[in-house]
Amino acid sequence: MTDMPLAGPSVPHDGTDAEARPVFVEERRVLGLPVSAWPGIIAPLTIGLFALAAWELIVEWKRVPSYILPGPLLIAKTLVTDWDTLSGALWITLRITFAALVAAVTVGVALAILFTQSKWLEKSLFPYAVILQVTPVVSIAPLIIIWVGDINLSLLICAWLVAFFPILSNTILGLNSADHNLINLFQLYRASRWQTLRHLRLPAALPYFLAGLKISGGLALIGAVVAEFVAGSGGNASGLAYRILESGYQLRIPRMFAALILISLSGIAIFLVTSWIAHLFLRRWHESAIRREN
């Protein structure tokens, strides 16, 4: 074996190595999704359809008035007939959610990088980030609305307050979790602070940041809706939460349900999008994104 030239062969010349290489088999796909993914979609869908049918039947059979509990068909009809009002409200809520999430990512990541560059900065400021996080947003929302004046900006601040902490704490954890030997290696090659951040700490933090993003996406929506409830009870809001309040006052319960469904769907969509983003970034290398045969 030793007289073999070192350069040349496209496979390492020890059979053990080549055999130990994991084999990746491309799975068969139906409608763009791997076959094994379909049961996870079909099973909950079936349960959902059964539940909706049972709901509709009970409402029909017991003749439950629609101001107590509207059936799914009526809700669907309301969703269509009230679409103009509801879609406007949906757009407003989504805009606030999205803006809050972008702000949370920007501020969370920037603060996390700052904190990991200076232990003193982290020690001095992190407790305040915790205080912001543990104070319920409902209790400070009225203050923020009074102080800020502009309703959209105050809603944005409330949603941001709820959303930014998971990104901050996860990113800090990630930035500090780079392999110690790799940090040593960067020292050996006399890498600058910026190079270590760019080539080592940021990539190492990516899975943690993305886990934070998944949580924060949902929280931004919750923050926006909760803040809107507070603002809505003062009569100055126009998002989905406000439509729910308004429908409650006017006993238009089907519309209330329709708005509720739009909030849920938004939450699901946010979750799916953030999960998809995480998958795109991690699928090639991270344990969490790897499907194993055993």
């Binding site: 350069a7 040349g8 062969p9 496209s10 390492p12 020890d14 190595d17 130990a20 994991p22 344990e287």
Partner: peptide, 24 residues
């Protein structure tokens, strides 16, 4: 990489390589 016998594995990620190949 060719010199350590890993020609053709340039685009592989570490998790796709065996222990010996990672060491290479």
């Amino acid at each position: 990489l060719a010199l350590v016998g890993l020609k053709g594995f340039e685009a592989s990620y570490p998790r796709e390589l065996s222990g010996g190949m990672k060491m290479r």
